[in-house]
Design a protein around this nucleic acid. Structure first.
Lengths: 248, 248
DNA sequence: CGACACTTTGACTGTAGTCAATGTAAGTGG
DNA sequence: CCACTTACATTGACTACAGTCAAAGTGTCG
């Protein structure tokens, strides 16, 4: 590789939109150049599989844009989404090739992929990287446990309200005209009703009925199937029966 | 501290029952001497709180013996157990003092405690320790996601069967006379029916009814309230509607 | 326009929850 | 030693929330 190419690749990471938020944020300029060399951008369409639980994961990836769903399935086809990942989350399992779930694009997804062997070499060389991954894994564990509370103990209405709050806090607010009104948000759902049902341990029909119910009660406004407005976030939070800790 | 005292403490860890299984297994003899100096044994009675979600966790601990339940609660008191920990699991949250759940002894518990500051110092000095903790956290995440599938998608019968299988794989088999018969196990439940209900997202009554149902169908034998025999583990596994991956 | 995928709505059902009574076993004190 | 208390578990009758099955509605794309 020429010096020019090296610099070009370094520049690419250097100007990356999620440079300081992703796991790469732990890296020095020199280390960034190292990871830059093995990185490759990839576009994934909705519904496409990213990682299968049947084969070894041969790469790691930063999510640059879009939403990825992690799911598990029972023998008879019942499905449960066990994690949602947004930019700048990290995808892939360090140590131990076996991936115990299925990763699939829920929306259009932009990935920054690192081949397994190269990334694991970097992990050994740059200790800050593993530390950053560890912290990310701890957040995922917190989110999973928060979701266990939802799945095991919340009613359908509380589940849907909690879901909307979680999405509102993780996707961009597109209700700009009311930006001064902190309690008003508009956002786009990254999931279909079927995905939402699989995430909440409900059926499509129940999710749909709860959406309608929240709408008729004035808690949400269904702009269209994918776009939701919340005129009063506090009112929605009441429906979610929030305990103290916020959903990540 | 005298050399004699130092050696005595080192010896203590050196002969610890979980020496090679716990996170300490990552340590060299010299490092073990270091951690030995700050370790303190503690006994906890069933029902006693170990860590609260309201206060900062001031210590870390290895579980030497017994079962610890991690739980979360909604404002109105509904509770969900989000993790069960057995020996030689590790307890406590590295980086970030906030503990997002409640840790309580389910049985008599023996802990080997390390004060927060001392342990974090060791974490910096012995990189193998953090690596070991990371791997442990990854297992916890896998278990949490497996449980999300159970909570969101399994029926009451499948939940109870899955629970019994998980317990059978993690507590000692006390059905020694049949030890040659691999498919036969007897074990003691570390949880009350109320705890089991909170772990499975069910009510006490439903758990009890499912126990009775499995008993009348000959899948399990309820020796007494706390002791269960499984004459044919495969038959129980069928009731759990297991997907390929085993419950950790 | 029609095909298709996704969503909503309605009628009915069934699983697990609720409320209440009874059963069981261990521990306490007269 | 036996009544009594207490905590935990089981069983029964009834209810309700979410699931199932079916039909109609909506929006997008060729």
């Amino acid at each position: 590789m020429t010096v020019a190419q090296n610099i070009a690749m370094h520049q690419r990471c250097d100007h990356c939109a999620i440079r300081h938020k992703a796991v790469c944020g732990a890296l020095s300029d020199e280390e960034l150049a190292g990871i830059s060399k093995i990185a490759r951008q990839r576009h994934i369409k909705p519904g496409q599989t990213i990682l299968s639980d049947e084969e070894d994961a041969e790469f790691f990836a930063n999510i640059v844009a879009g939403t990825v769903k992690l799911s598990k399935t029972l023998a008879d086809g019942r499905q449960q989404i066990v994690g949602l990942q947004f930019s700048p989350d990290f995808l892939g399992r360090a140590f131990g090739a076996e991936n115990p779930f299925f990763a699939e694009a829920a929306t259009n997804v932009e990935l920054c992929c690192f081949p397994r062997d190269g990334f694991e070499r970097l992990l050994k060389e740059y200790p800050g990287l593993e530390h950053r991954l560890f912290k990310h894994t701890l957040s995922e564990l917190d989110a999973a446990r928060e979701w266990m509370l939802l799945l095991g103990r919340k009613t359908a209405e509380e589940k849907v309200a909690s879901f909307l709050l979680m999405i509102a806090s993780r996707v961009p607010n597109i209700g700009c005209k009311h930006s001064d009104e902190l309690n008003f948000v508009t956002f786009e759902l990254p999931l279909t009703r079927a995905d939402i049902a699989d995430y909440l341990g409900l059926t499509i029909e129940t999710v749909s009925r709860q959406f309608t119910r929240l709408r008729t009660q004035g808690v949400i406004d269904i702009v269209n199937k994918r776009e939701i407005s919340v005129p009063d976030v506090d009112a929605l939070a009441e429906r979610a029966d929030q305990d103290s800790s916020p959903l990540i």
